[in-house]
Each structure stands twice: as C-alpha cells, then as structure tokens.
Design a protein around this nucleic acid. Structure first.
Lengths: 233, 233
DNA sequence: AATACAAGTTGATATATATCAATATTTCTA
DNA sequence: TAGAAATATTGATATATATCAACTTGTATT
C-alpha cells in the first residue's frame, strides 16, 4: 500500500503526487499553480467538497482515498467513483456554473491540493496541450458515468454488486486482496441497492466461495465467476 | 413547429441552423469548417451514427429531431437525450479514442452537418473562446447524464415516466401539446422500464387526467400533478 | 470495563416491476 | 385493399427488490 503514503513535497516542482496533467505545464505555468495552491490534510470521514458549493479551486489528490458521489433524492447518494492519489478532480462545474456537482469525502486520511480555478482556466486557455490532456481526463470520467448508467439500470443486483467489487479489484487496488474501505452501506450506494440487499449479496458471494471478507479485508477468490455474474447481469 | 423546418443554406456563413458554438469562429475558421463539412439528409428511422464506429466527424443537427442513446446490454438501449436543430454533438470520444460512444437515430426527417474532426480539433486548439464554449456545451451534456443517473436509479417508475414526459415538455417542445415522436418502447428506453410498464403508466396518467394521447399527439393537461409525481419519485 | 452508539445481519413480509401470453390495433407493403 | 408485420394493450403471474423489525456484533467513549 505504499502508493497511498504521502509523498507530497512543499512545492509542485518536485511533487510526486501531482496529477500527470500538470506535467504538461512549463516552468512558469507550474510556478503560477504552485503560488496559488492550497494544501490540506483530511481525516478519514471528513468532507473534502460538498456538492452545490462554489468552485473556487479544482482538486488533486496527493495521498489517501476518497469517494466521489452524487447527492440525489431524499439524502440518498450514488457513488460515482473512488478517487486515488494523483487523480485530478474538476468536473462539469468548471465550465458550467462554477459549482461542484458532486461531493467528495475522505475514506482514508488524505492529502489534497486545491488549485486556484482562475489560474487553472487561464493556463488551459493558453496551453493547448494541457487543455487536450484535461479534456482526455474529463472524457474518461464521462465514459465512466455512461458505463455506470448502463450497468445500474440494465443489470440486476448480483451483477451490479459483482461490478462494484470488480471495480475495486481492477481499478482501485489491482490485487485480489484489499482493505474494505467501503461500509456495506457505501457499497450499496456504489451499486444502487438497499443496504440489506448489499449485505445479503455479499453473504451469498461468500457462501459460494467467490470472495472472503475478514478483518476489514476483502479477498477475491474466484474472479472468473465474479466476471460471469457481472456479464449475466 | 417551424423551428424544425430546414433553413440550411449551402454554406456555413449564412446558415441559420448551425450550433451557436460556431458563432465564435472567425471568418477563416468558418471557411475551414465549411470547406471540410458534409451535409446529409436522413429519413426518420435511419441511423445517423452508430456507437463504436470511428469518429471522423462531429455533428450538428440542422433540422429534424433525433434520439441519442447508449447501446447497453443484450440489445437494450438507454436514450440519453433528444437532439434538436442547432444542437452540437461531439461526445467523450473526441478526446478519448476517436470513437462514438453513443448511437444517434433520426426520429423525423433530419438534416445533419458532419464537421471534420481534425479541423474541429485544430480550431479548438487555437481559438480559446471557441474551446471554452465547446466545454460549456459538453459540460451541460455531462450534467444531464448526472441527473439521469440519479433519477433513473433513485425514482420509481411513475416518477421516471413523469420525468420523461416533463423532459419532452420542458426541454424539447416547450408547449403542452406536442407530437408523439417516441414510441411506447422508446419512451420505456428513456425511463428505464419495460415497454409494458410504460404503456400501463401512460394509461394511468390518462385515466387520472394528467395527459391526453390521441392521433400521435400528446397533451399535458395537468403539469402540476405531473411535477408532483416527478418529485415524489 | 461498562455503556452507548453505529454498523452489520437476518428472515419475514410487502411492494415494485418484469415477464408472459393473448389480443387488438396500427402501419407498411405488395 | 388484403395481408403481413410491427406496435400497442391488457390482465395474470412470477420475480426482484425494498422495507421492516428484531437482533448481533463491533467500535468508540468515558
């Protein structure tokens, strides 16, 4: 788990945690970012950004893990994705209404850089290579939401839960054994079902020997079956 | 319905149907777009763009109406939105993998301009005002998908169907009486339910006097009740 | 260590929704 | 215009899923 340690340095020049996006900046531009950034540490459970608030900065996660989610109807949320170190977080608000359209909450102790939005936009408008990379990043996020929309509306619960676990396995931890950073409730918010249904599905998956959960750790035992369940829907 | 007539002229300079995006181009840039565009008419029912294919051009709808939808699991689709004249259609593929990530099918006879993608990207990289407008447009589309994801996963069928009808009323036709451009099946693809459920809900809405359907026309009779149903979920 | 509070678990039940099958209606085509 | 094909409709039924209520376990706090 060394990748989740904080390798942040005081300045952007030699920071190893920054989003790859910023490697497309020249020295002056990086200097400008550095001079106008704010670096803050969050404890697990703390809200990093609240949906609806004014977007004064864009974010880059240096260390830790966070959940990025839409606050929907009557307090219910839909987790869009898990945010990893070096992930850039902008969102559609940058160019729409300068508001955050999702909330972000730390799952582990996390260190976050806040980059001044005006500086960011200024650089975007003059550095077209940077702009292109930003668009690539943004587009990838959008595709994630397309996929989510399909699988949340067209698969039944077992397929959705399998997808949630495979997401953690394939995209976040890249290994069959990983810490259970999400509560059952959060897992249900990731797969659009009730908390109780999430519990029951995990139990079933365990009974069938697909996974093993113990001591805040989840181990994927039979990934092929999990993928099959994901496909069947 | 005059807005759906084709006011396309042969050249972009005096075309009244072009997306507002292109008003941010200078003469040379518009000339470049014009010289590299292709203009095609589609009959209702024809596929304008197929998900997964190579993106050689971006699109602008001059006249008609089309549905933009994600092709999901086992042939099932989710309609993302209805495309109106002067709507620009790019999508996340422009900067991700140069593929179309949704399909588009004409609902009415439609005229469409295909704008060369390389020309488009070239202009984006040099005209930052244009790039900003493009990003605004893209971001608005993304927010639509956020909303869809929430309402499709957190509302029950009556709320989802009410939302679908309100979408047509508020965003596409802007009037209480409009042609039924979508079949019951397509309406079910817009609200993530089975065709039969869609039929039954429309019947219920009619019985309760919320809407009236006759002769390929839908009239919203009681929009307040419809909005209430949308809210309740 | 005792207590309180949050999170997880379970089975029973209610509800929402899909599926099925049969029929009706519309639209298209020869 | 007849026939075929697609679309729409309906009620009955099966299934998926949420809700409820009771209980257990874990975690934090004093």
């Amino acid at each position: 788990m060394s990748e989740y340690f904080d390798k942040t340095s005081k300045h952007c020049y030699d920071c190893q945690c920054m989003s790859h996006l910023f490697s497309f900046l020249n020295k002056d531009e990086l200097q400008m970012v550095d001079a106008n950034k704010i670096h803050v540490r969050f404890k697990a459970g703390e809200t990093i950004k609240k949906q609806g608030t004014y977007m004064s900065h864009v974010l880059s996660i240096n260390s830790g893990l966070a959940k990025l989610y839409l606050e929907g109807i009557e307090g219910r949320s839909a987790i869009l994705r898990i945010v990893k170190p070096s992930n850039f977080i902008g969102g559609p608000g940058i160019y729409h209404d300068q508001r955050h359209h999702f909330s972000i909450t730390a799952l582990l102790d996390s260190s976050v850089c806040f980059i001044d939005l005006q500086v960011f936009k200024k650089i975007l408008s003059v550095n077209s290579l940077f702009a292109e990379e930003f668009l690539k990043d943004f587009s990838r996020d959008v595709l994630t939401v397309y996929n989510r929309l399909i699988y949340l509306t067209q698969k039944q619960m077992p397929g959705r839960m399998a997808d949630a676990l495979l997401y953690l396995h394939d995209e976040i931890f890249n290994q069959p054994r990983f810490p259970m950073i999400l509560s059952r409730f959060e897992l249900s918010e990731l797969s659009a079902m009730s908390r109780e249904s999430a519990v029951k599905l995990l139990r079933d998956f365990q009974k069938e020997g697909l996974i093993r959960i113990s001591d805040h750790e989840l181990e994927v035992l039979d990934i092929e079956s999990l993928r099959k369940i994901s496909q069947i829907g």
